[in-house]
Simulated scan of single mutants.
Amino acid sequence: MTGSARNFLEFHDIPEAGLRSIVARAGDLAKAWDERAMPQSLAGKRVALIVDDGGWRNTTAFDLGIQAMGGICAHVPGFNAREEIGDLSGYLGNWFDMLVIRTKEFATLKAVVAASPVPVINARTRSNHPCETLGDLAYINSRRSSIDGLKVVGVAADANILRSWAEASIALPIKVVQVYPERWHIGDAALINKRFRVSTDMGELTDADVIITDSWPSDATWEALAGYRIGTDVLDRLREDAIFLPCPPVTRGQEVTAEAMAHPLCQSRAAKAFLLHAQNALMEWVAT
């Protein structure tokens, strides 16, 4: 964990026991949400929501969740290039109990944490997106009653979504396999561990519990990636209880076909509901 505060910059910033408690708590909060009986766990807490790179899904969920649990959410404009990050962090720490930040560079978050007197949550960077993975794991746990021993196959390039799954394999007993052409394999030594590996073989999907995708890299050609597109022909060969989670924004016709989005194994919409619940559970944990 970074420093003494309960920061969440990378998935493995939180010990396994903490992650398990958050994932389980997300299931409780999902029920409370449906019953319109949310606990007021953030009552009296002031949370800054800083969006520095666009996006809307998880930041909207943060805003809604903070209010639903009794907290105060203030939208703060993106970082001012004329002021030092350390100075800004200190100023915000005068007013807020927690900072939730969506920004492009992971280094920006590190600089904020180094100077912030209050906890910081990573709402997304170009390097990783731990809240997205946390939400997916909470959904998977709600379906399977466990996340132990999962085989997660990421048909995706080295980018923020897949990197957060690799981070998760450091902290949790899940296996993650990247299946993609070698040119786009993850090579970051900080993410390599005994539960993460790379492959070019689409046969890895056959016994997968979970399949995730991400947008095609901008420097890719159709010829290079056509064999890694997920269509109904691929999904029909998977296990009946497999969970297919194409990562939004989905580019139909590239990483997935339009038909694959309507396949029974595709559970993206239901899973993304848990983004709210997992982030709420995370904020509870951070605020404790």
Rank of each mutant, 00 (worst) to 15 (best):
G3E: 04
S4M: 15
S4Y: 12
F8S: 07
F8G: 03
L9P: 02
F11N: 03
D13R: 08
E16Y: 04
R20F: 01
V23R: 11
V23A: 10
A24L: 11
L29V: 05
W33S: 15
D34E: 15
E35I: 02
E35R: 15
M38K: 08
R46T: 04
V51H: 09
D53S: 15
D53E: 15
G54M: 07
D63F: 13
L64M: 14
L64E: 08
L64R: 13
G65V: 11
Q67S: 12
Q67G: 07
A68I: 05
A68P: 02
A74Q: 14
G78T: 05
E83N: 12
G90I: 00
L92P: 00
W95E: 10
L99A: 06
V100K: 06
I101V: 15
R102E: 06
K104F: 15
F106L: 14
F106S: 10
S116Y: 00
I121S: 11
A123P: 00
R124M: 15
R124K: 15
T125C: 07
T125V: 02
R126L: 14
C131Q: 04
G135H: 04
L137C: 04
L137H: 00
I140V: 15
S142N: 03
R144W: 01
I147C: 08
G154C: 09
A157V: 02
D158I: 00
N160D: 03
R163T: 00
R163E: 00
A166H: 01
I174E: 01
V177C: 11
E182K: 15
E182Y: 08
I186K: 06
A190K: 14
A190N: 10
L191E: 02
S199D: 05
G203D: 07
G203C: 08
L205Q: 03
T206D: 14
D209K: 07
I212L: 12
W216Q: 05
S218H: 13
S218G: 12
S218D: 13
D219Q: 07
D219S: 07
E223P: 01
E223Y: 09
G227K: 11
R229M: 13
G231Y: 08
R239P: 05
I243V: 13
G253R: 08
A260V: 03
M261C: 13
M261I: 03
A262F: 11
H263S: 07
C266D: 00
Q267N: 11
A271G: 05
F274K: 06
L276P: 01
A278R: 03
A281C: 08
E284F: 09
E284A: 15
W285M: 10
T288N: 14
